[in-house]
Nucleic acid binder design. Structure first.
Length: 579
RNA sequence: CGGGGUGUGGCGCAGCUUGGUAGCGCGUCCGCUUUGGGAGCGGAAGGCCGCCGGUUCAAAUCCGGCCACCCCGACCA
């Protein structure tokens, strides 16, 4: 491709709207443009990267036994009513000219299950693995980071159907490897973490986190074993015992208008870790439950729900809180509460002389201790894990990192198949509910995450596997060396190396800057030494450069391409199932 | 949805307090010079000042309403 004819609108100045490195660079390098909040157009270079990532996803899912299909983006709402997910708040809703309710697909469990229930009759047709790569729509509360969290994005979604848990487990392992291989081929530094399956349902799930400081998700990694989990999911180990203490007498203090932990710690000048945060929840069954965590901690609602045997929990209404505590919201404490189960985070066993709400308006209470002043009905791991907490699997310490979720795999079980009546006849002729798995990989998000993780002060740094072109050929003096460079361009193409040939009548500096910004891995320069039959060759982001005879340049570039690809493929081949 | 901020040639911004013929840098086009890390000089094109309404002789500027976009939080299947 000749640069002079290419649509590559690079920007010298940074668009004001972009904060993240990836967002700025993808705009500046002419890979994409914004149409609306969370909605982006992919320009030629960006589109080539997206297509290459999609191709790798396709190759790897085919390798794992998947069959590609293409489902509609426009769905009748009734289909989503079957699983109750039509009420999800991020779903885009619309009506047709006849006032029929439609939604835009944010994922496709319902649609694929509808197809399978209609066509699969016998255990002989299972297992089955079907996938697609398609645009998804989600009405995000707040799109951000450019294409990292968009409202329209390209996603790979795969669904598997089984007659047994063992069969699901096997496919889950295959997909575990599949996503790992994809990310390795993209050259990404990532971490597989145990994840919360959330409202999509199911039991086991893992997320593929691309490790970047700007990532929205917090993950925790053990510094001495392989345990790794999303902060939403992460369990916490026992940890060391607290120091001994002498119980002091209880004391009531007036704290007019101070409701939050921050306000109270400021006012009373006690550290948040000396406080008990008393959170009052209601379960789906209408039961009132009191959750206690240390003042500087956050309660993890998923953990609370699990500790209560899987009940749904939600913060109680102000009326319920007043009825239970006799005080307005903001002054609750665990002492003297009747009619509610008290469940406390294990950390509260360490230490004492806690500060909490007094269960009366505008007052807090000092020096309360478990046993003497309040009792706990159940101890549990209730708080959101943070760096420094103990590993639940060994004696190590958890380290906190940030990541972008690129992929998520779930053992779904029968949640959707049961709700939608997807059954088959087993060998005995008995009807059985199909067991399902679901797997998702954000294609455009992965592209943004690559830009975030693989960039330097000069611009992007694409791995050879997905670079928009494998080589960029800079002809510094088109008048003198244009014919020679054009011939080399043809030779490179013939050798299987895709080339962006910079034939523009620009100064050398402009060409170097643009080449670095765009981030094509192999840079070939036809410059001063062209008259001696030599060109320069180097890899973007690496300092070594060498002079190569013009006659060997195409072959050298092809060999370099193969070597760079082999590095990535070797990493992919080393991926092993972690489950 | 709560809080904060911004909308002025393609991009980045000034002008708004104190109303009076819309400006700068980059980019674009033409010419000459230059030519290995975003060149220099000269010339030129390009703007319903986000939208609607109000005040005024006069509104980018003041007032009201709306919209869009960004950031923080809530949320995130």
């Amino acid at each position: 491709m000749n640069y002079s004819r290419a649509f590559v609108p690079t920007l010298r100045e940074v668009p004001a709207e972009a904060e993240l490195i990836s967002h700025r660079l993808l705009l500046r390098a002419g890979f994409m443009r914004k149409l609306a909040s969370g909605v982006y157009s992919w320009l030629p270079l960006g589109h080539r990267v997206v297509q290459k990532v999609a191709a790798i996803v396709r190759e790897e899912n085919n390798r794992a036994g998947g069959q590609e299909l293409l489902l509609p983006a426009l769905h009748p709402r009734e289909l989503w009513d079957e699983t109750g997910r039509s009420a999800v708040d991020v779903i885009f809703r619309l009506k047709d000219r006849n006032e029929r309710d439609l939604v835009l697909g944010m994922t496709h469990e319902e649609v694929i299950t509808d197809i399978v229930r209609g066509e699969v009759r016998s255990y002989r047709q299972l297992p089955l693995m079907l996938y697609q790569i398609q645009t998804k729509f989600r009405d995000e509360p707040r799109p951000r980071g450019g294409v990292i969290r968009g409202r329209e994005f390209l996603m790979h979604d795969c669904y598997s159907f089984h007659t047994s848990q063992e069969s699901l487990d096997e496919t889950y392992r295959q997909m575990y490897v599949c996503y790992g291989r994809i990310l390795k081929r993209l050259g990404l530094d990532f971490q597989v973490v145990e994840a919360e399956s959330g409202s999509i349902g199911g039991s086991v799930s893992h997320e593929y986190m691309i490790v970047v400081d700007s990532g929205e998700d917090t993950i925790l990694l053990c510094d001495s074993c392989t345990y790794a989990a999303n902060a939403e999911r992460c369990e916490i180990g026992q940890g060391a015992d607290g120091e001994a203490f002498e119980p002091d007498p209880v004391k009531l203090v007036q704290t007019p208008g101070r409701r939050t932990i921050d306000e109270v710690t400021d006012f009373l000048e006690v550290p948040a870790e000396k406080m008990i945060k008393t959170l009052i929840y209601e379960t789906g069954g209408g039961e009132v439950v009191v959750g206690l965590v240390r003042g500087d901690r956050d309660l993890n609602e998923a953990k609370l729900a699990r500790a209560l045997g899987g009940a749904k929990v939600a913060l109680a209404s102000p009326e319920t809180i007043e009825k239970l505590t006799g005080a307005p919201v903001g002054f609750a404490g665990p002492q003297g509460l009747k009619g509610a189960k008290i469940i406390a985070d294990g950390e509260l066993r360490n230490g004492g002389n806690w500060v909490s709400g007094a269960n009366e308006a505008d007052a807090h209470i000092l020096n309360i201790n478990e046993g003497r002043d309040f009792s706990v009905d159940q101890w549990a791991d209730l708080r959101v894990a943070t760096g420094g907490d103990s590993c639940p699997r060994c004696s190590g310490t958890l380290v906190e990192k940030h990541g972008v979720e690129a992929g998520h795999i779930f053992k779904l079980g029968t949640k959707y198949s049961a709700a939608m009546g997807a059954t088959y006849l087993d060998a005995n002729g008995a009807g059985q509910t199909i067991i399902m798995g679901t797997y998702g990989f954000g294609v455009t998000r992965a592209v943004a995450a690559m830009a975030e993780q693989m960039a330097d002060a000069d611009g992007l740094l694409w791995p050879i596997s997905v670079a928009p072109y494998e080589a960029v050929l800079l002809c510094l003096n088109v008048e003198e060396d244009g014919a020679l460079a054009a011939k080399l361009c043809d030779e490179l193409e013939a050798a299987g190396v895709s080339v962006l040939y910079d034939d523009r009548a620009e100064r050398a500096g402009v060409k170097f800057k643009d080449a670095d910004l765009i981030g094509i891995p192999i840079q070939i320069v036809v410059g001063r030494s062209a008259k001696d039959g030599k060109v320069e060759m180097r890899v973007r982001g690496r300092s070594e450069k060498k002079e190569v005879a013009l006659s060997h340049a195409a072959a050298e570039a092809a060999a370099l391409k193969d070597a760079l690809l082999a590095e990535l493929d070797g990493a992919a081949d080393a991926v092993r199932p972690g489950v």
